[in-house]
Design a binder for these strands. Structure first.
Lengths: 190, 190
DNA sequence: AAAATTCGTTGACTCTGATCAAGAAATAAA
DNA sequence: TTTATTTCTTGATCAGAGTCAACGAATTTT
């Protein structure tokens, strides 16, 4: 749990009292490979913090998996849209390896928001952080070609390349596996 | 100003005291058509609320304007990324008509965050709201074709179609003006 | 109102990624 | 280790958006 407190300190430093209240609302969970944290149609009533492992967040479109995001240790894993709007999720969240997460449920988080100003602030900082993450991804689709997105990935996120099969990377980049294979072949030639 | 208080009530209802503090940090500004609210390279140190008018948020890529967003009355207009990260803006914000906005600067907002829990919460709700806006737009790029995005626009945002020239809509949809013209011609045929 | 400019449409052609198909390589299962 | 399955690569072809160019329509300027 102290590991988590340390991770969270990049957002805000909580007093012992605040941390005790917060941490007692958190539940540690483990899961094995290929387990669903959330299925399509379910409402997402939690935010979880990834301690160990890897998750993918995807949408099923006519039988095809469209991967929207990966979640690594240090990331928040949730369908944050469903969490905020209370609408059923259109996405699946699935573990890609044995994983450890720290989960907090909406009701308990809301109670903490009401009780502690610092946790209300933590909630703001998390929302702001998630905003920055999605806008960055949106920008990469608005302003870059698949090849540029792949290059970007090479520079910024080596974990993705190590831990994720190529056909999933292709989906994440918004292209077909054949196309990513050709992009890589092209780059070899340079 | 009461108009603004009413608009904000969809996020949170402030007491008179809180509202007085908040509203005294807000400055009303007017601008005419084609004025820059923010230029590339500047740091965005404000969030503004659109009272009247229309703004576009765009990125200049090799001389070409790539429109990322439009802001209508009731929207927050800001480079929220630059606001949060204190990095210089890569985008321009330009008025498309005579407009009225209500601006609050980062320093004053932060002071209010510190002083009032309810305004801290307002900040969270705004961040959450902006998150939902960008994820929706990201999803439209991840899961839809330009034609589907155009149809979506027809159904959901009639103001865009009325007030925005077609070549800007094309940019917003991520296609060239010629392509949007052909999409429209195709749809006529149905 | 006339002229100038900007905006929207259409055609011919190009380019990039998708699709379909086959086979090689890598990984998992027996 | 052998077999089976999944993943990756490569080729041929297709489809949709981009580019370039011309022209008509609409708007703005004079």
């Amino acid at each position: 749990m102290e590991q988590i407190r340390n991770y969270f300190s990049k957002f805000i430093v909580l007093t012992d009292t605040e941390w005790n209240a917060f941490s007692s609302a958190i539940r540690k969970e483990t899961c094995t490979k290929k387990q669903f944290l959330l299925q399509q149609g379910e409402e997402c009533d939690f935010i979880a913090f990834v301690g160990e492992g890897l998750f993918r967040f995807y949408y099923l479109q006519e039988g095809e998996e469209k991967i929207t995001a990966f979640f690594f240790p240090g990331d928040f894993v949730s369908n944050y849209r469903s969490f905020l709007t209370r609408q059923p999720s259109e996405h699946y969240i699935e573990s890609m390896s044995d994983s450890v997460i720290y989960k907090i449920h909406r009701n308990e988080l809301n109670a903490l928001y009401n009780e502690y100003k610092s946790i209300e602030r933590l909630g703001r900082l998390i929302a702001e952080n998630l905003y920055l993450v999605v806008t960055k991804r949106l920008d990469s689709f608005l302003y870059s070609t698949p090849e540029e997105r792949y290059k970007e990935l090479l520079n910024r996120n080596s974990r993705l390349l190590q831990d994720v099969p190529q056909y999933m990377l292709a989906s994440y980049l918004g292209v077909k596996p054949e196309t990513l294979s050709r992009i890589r072949a092209r780059k070899q030639a340079d």
